[in-house]
Each structure stands twice: as structure tokens, then as C-alpha cells.
């Protein structure tokens, strides 16, 4: 594991809200991140169906997106979300783990652009897709 990946992993594992939602980092590197979130009845949006709340899926997608920025070869020291747009294609199947795969596909000097897809155990039919822009804070050049 490279230093960069280690830094990104530490960054994600130190996020209190990621821990609160039970998120677990699966893959990380080269501007791509995969994070999973096991089903939990506390995150349900509609108790009649047991379907997870969109907000919980959004939080997972936001975290995966930030992680993909942090492990981009541009080696940012920090990032925050500027804008995130999420399309919900279908309700997540109750009881199933949600996986978010994010890719930081382009960076400028100060902005990173991401794509992110969330699936449940039926990976052929995404639950939600998103695009976003994140700030990209680069390390200061050494004097």
C-alpha cells in the first residue's frame, strides 16, 4: 500500500460520521474508492417497507466521493464537497449492503470532479448515481 493510499485510508477511518453509519473501506487508490455500508434498521426511511433513507445513501456516496479525491495522484491534503447531485433510480432492497464506487475523473488546480454509483447486492441495477465537484487543496510548495 502506498503512502498516499495510507493517508487517504486514515483520513476516512477518522471520520466520526462514517463510523456512525458503519461504513467500511473496501478499495482505494488512483482516484477510485469503494466503500460499503451494511443494512441497519436505524437508517430506514420508510418503516412500512424497510427501505433505507436516501440521506443515508447520500452520506455513503459523499464519503466515497471525498475518498476518491483524497487518493487521486494529485495528492490533495484536504477536500470538501462543493456540489453533489444524486439521481435515485430505485429503492435499495431492504436487508442488503450498499456499495458506493466513486471515481475522481478530473482535477484542476483547485477543483476535483467525481462520478459515483451506489448498488445493493444486485450490481447490474444501480440504486443511485451521482456527480459532484469537490475542492482540492494541494500541499504548499516547499520553500
Amino acid at each position: 500500500m502506498t503512502d498516499l493510499t495510507m493517508t487517504a485510508r486514515r483520513f476516512i477511518e477518522s471520520i466520526p460520521h462514517a463510523r456512525a453509519l458503519g461504513m467500511c473501506l473496501k478499495e482505494l487508490g488512483d482516484g477510485k474508492a469503494t466503500i460499503v455500508m451494511p443494512y441497519d434498521t436505524r437508517f430506514v426511511g420508510d418503516p412500512a417497507t424497510g427501505v433505507l433513507h436516501g440521506g443515508a445513501v447520500s452520506a455513503l456516496m459523499d464519503t466515497a466521493s471525498g475518498a476518491s479525491v483524497m487518493c487521486h495522484p494529485a495528492a490533495p491534503v484536504a477536500t470538501v464537497t462543493l456540489d453533489l447531485r444524486i439521481d435515485y433510480m430505485r429503492p435499495a432492497t431492504p436487508g442488503q449492503t450498499i456499495t458506493a464506487r466513486a471515481e475522481c475523473h478530473h482535477v484542476t488546480r483547485s477543483v476535483a470532479f467525481i462520478r459515483v454509483v451506489a448498488t445493493d447486492e444486485d450490481e447490474a441495477r444501480p440504486v443511485a448515481m451521482g456527480t459532484g465537484a469537490f475542492t482540492l487543496e494541494r500541499a504548499r510548495a516547499k520553500p
Binding site: I15, P16, H17, A20, G54, S58, V80, L84
Partner: peptide
């Protein structure tokens, strides 16, 4: 609440918490 933090260094609310808060308010 402490569990809503996304960046412990700043500290700041998690972007996902903000998104969820807005979505719950809308619904």
C-alpha cells in the same frame, strides 16, 4: 452531535449529514 462530524481536524459537519438533513426536511 459528535457523530455528525465529517472532518475532525476543522471540525465540520459531514457533507452527507448536511445532504441528509436537507432531504429529510424536504420530504
Amino acid at each position: 452531535d459528535e457523530k455528525l462530524i465529517g472532518n475532525p481536524a476543522l471540525p465540520a459537519l459531514h457533507g452527507g449529514v448536511t445532504a441528509a438533513f436537507l432531504e429529510v426536511t424536504a420530504i
